[in-house]
Design a protein around this nucleic acid. Structure first.
Lengths: 339, 339
DNA sequence: TTGGCAATAGTTTACGCAAAGTTTTGGCGG
DNA sequence: CCGCCAAAACTTTGCGTAAACTATTGCCAA
């Protein structure tokens, strides 16, 4: 009589192989693997665990996702992953998600609305349980999200379309704090560097900048538009320098832009903050390590990530929609004129 | 007689719903969706496309992955996604993968080997078709990769374990070029800032640095270890400054470190490059926008990404293993002393 | 001794899709 | 008008899993 030896299967090891090896049914393996609804006798469990170890079984997440209709993952869409603000935000989301046992998959739209839509589609197809969308624009195209019926949280500082959670910061208050700080340093001509295209929505940073100036009885400063990037800021900086009566201070609405402006100033030999002060927005790591270190309006990245993940999970449970506006914090460094 | 109207199903729309609506079988829908092996009559195809549009059908990637045993995705593991070098590398991989119709999922190990292993596991479970591993250490733990039997490419500059493709740069030659450039500027005391723990392997940058000095008949410069991060570089910079006879130039083996060093120098009022020259390694965007702009040994990020993706696809096809060493390029800016 | 009821283990099904296998349709030559 | 063949469409199967459902123990009380 030939003993039918249990041998290692050739392809990937499945639950079935483990079950056969351990001499139990596949269901029992399931229970052992993910603490199923039924108890398993300790001896049986040990056998199963041994079999899993010996055969090198690893669960197939695709099958699990198919069966459950959930991949225990949240998807994140950012417009630019070379911008450290979004990198840090993604990092924070990853941590917050991990705490709830969720993974994260990060996609980058590279400033293109087309790619943004495509990314959302891809994430939806992957059965992510939620999407955190930091859009390229102020009023993102949510048809793709609506169609997918996946809970989503918008990183949106200007009010969201109905049916969506949102997490944002108070742009206006942040900008106001920055500009008021510059006014406190005695500046009376304060320029604004801001994004190129904000759609129909008015950028809160512009509103706050203007309001702070007017409240102080100062004239409106010059405003220049440019992309939220280092090269974009560089160009804006050069344009500020070539102005007839250039401002004595600039509020840049984004760290990347500020770093580009800084470069333009350095090249022109303009000393910061003595000849021209600079305050920016975001509070990314790059602002801390520029020279001089940038005074910046920090967005509470961690809190935003946590709020987003909580909202996502909440919406999954059918909780109320939320529109959270979180406060910013002015981080004083050297570029504003403080010692 | 009641007309049995075809109504929108409640749950997610599946291929079956589309088939019923279009009055065809599910197989035909499949063929239409992904240009199946059989032709479909134009009229039928139009009907199916209409049905897809009207019902808002979106394919379930999990089911597809389960059936095919492939998710048309490659996974990337990086040690630190706040390091712009890895961000740019990931970006390049994403582009290269997209050209082949593959998606990318990026995971971050945060400098922890445990997280690195976990990330590989997660990616494997997700049925990625390949893994691109940029490890925290010089000799990564590949047991997880071997067990998963997923094709992998190691970002490894010091020779890989058997059975794996690798893509790397010639660290030694890059370092040599940097140091020789500094020697060309007349420096005779050139320090090295390098990572803390390189395992058993000797870092090629250390080798190249030393070789360049000795070839020029110069004494070995001082070497300091520190983490590959901005704060790490900051500490290293301060230690360099406090040295009895501090070097007149420093070769930093990483842009982040260099930026930290730069900050320490600025704070101490040491002018760069006049009083102390600095050259770094990586060629990330941050090096271009620091002040002064960093002369840096650029890694060919795009080429590396393309090589990695090609190798991944090649290994999938059972092609020969490859260990590619790509050349670096010295990008001259201001921090070295060039005008 | 036995009925009953936990505790434990086993069987089956469906998730959505792709592809192999099978049947129907239609066009054309003989 | 029939037979044949290819084109088009349809049917079925199985991927690996989770869970509902069913079956087997074994123990204790009546």
């Amino acid at each position: 009589m030939t003993t039918a030896a249990v041998q290692t299967p050739r392809g990937p090891v499945t639950r079935k192989d483990v079950a056969r090896y351990a001499g139990v049914s596949t269901a029992v393996v399931s229970y052992v693997v993910n603490g199923g609804p039924k108890n398993v006798a300790p001896a049986t469990e040990a056998k199963v665990r041994d079999a899993i170890r010996i055969l090198g079984y690893r669960p197939n997440a695709a099958a699990r996702a198919l069966k459950l209709g959930s991949s225990e993952t949240i998807g994140v869409v950012v417009p630019d992953n070379t911008n450290p603000f979004f990198t840090q935000l993604a990092h924070a989301v990853e941590d917050a998600a991990a705490e709830l046992g969720f993974g994260m998959v990060l996609t980058n739209s590279d400033g293109s609305l087309t790619r943004e839509r495509k990314n959302i589609r891809t994430l939806a197809a992957r059965q992510v349980d939620g999407v955190f969308l930091a859009s390229c624009v102020f009023d993102p195209d949510v048809t793709e999200l609506e169609a997918s019926e996946i809970p989503a949280v918008l990183l949106n500082n200007a009010g969201s379309p109905p049916g969506f959670n949102s997490v944002g910061v108070d742009l206006e208050a942040g900008a106001r704090a920055a500009v008021e700080h510059l006014i406190g340093h005695g500046h009376s001509s304060i320029g604004l560097a801001i994004g190129t295209n904000t759609g129909n929505q008015l950028d809160g940073r512009e509103v706050g900048w203007l309001a702070a100036l007017r409240d102080a009885g100062l004239p409106d400063g010059p405003m220049l538009h440019g992309p939220f990037s280092r090269p974009g800021g560089y160009e804006v900086g050069k344009r500020f320098l070539s102005m007839a009566n250039r401002p004595t201070a600039i509020f840049a609405s984004n760290d990347m832009q500020a770093i580009g402006i800084l470069r333009a100033l350095h090249e022109a030999g303009v000393r910061v903050p003595d000849e021209l002060a600079l305050v920016s927005f975001d509070g990314s790591l790059d602002a801390e390590y520029s020279w001089p270190a940038l005074t910046t309006v920090a967005q509470p990245v961690k809190a935003m990530a946590q709020a987003a993940v909580r909202a996502l999970v909440g919406k999954g449970r059918g909780e109320e929609l939320q529109h959270q506006i979180l406060p910013t914090e002015l981080i004083i460094r050297q570029s504003c004129g403080c010692p």
